[in-house]
Amino acid sequence: MADLSSDPARLNLIRYRDDKPVDHGAVTVDAFLDQSNASAVRIEPGDDARELIPHLERLALVEVNFPAFGDGRGYSSAQILREAGYEGELRAVGDVLVDQVAYMRRCGFDAFDPDSALDADDLEAALNRWPEVYQKAADGRTPIWSKRHA
């Protein structure tokens, strides 16, 4: 199993969680469903996140791959897993850019492992951009409609 701290591919990892990162690599959805001991899985855009739902309890890390930032299927995968009660790490990997991270956070991602490092200032600005939100989403922020009629 790879040691995360010395893994050059993990240099860009940003986590918004307090627990320790999983110390082994993620397997494909097919491999995960075939083997009982993996606790980390990687979802590709065409995978059905719902296949993981019966196994959420043994999952500590779900990586959602964005091969291209314009392919938005991973946002739905994240929402679906959070709606199903998944509380482990949800990590966006691949072509993850600073201008998409705010929406990713809203959909329940709490870790990012972008191909190219994100500028720290730009990242902070992006995550603090929205004073309010219109929709209910996996991040649990109170939407404007609820505030208006509190």
């Binding site: 930032f69 946002y75 929402q79 929406y103 929205w130 219109y134 929709q135």
Partner: peptide
């Protein structure tokens, strides 16, 4: 309009 503005899940359809 409000629901669809800045929708986090449906902005990269």
């Amino acid at each position: 309009r409000q629901w669809s503005s800045f929708h986090p899940e449906f902005s990269y359809l």
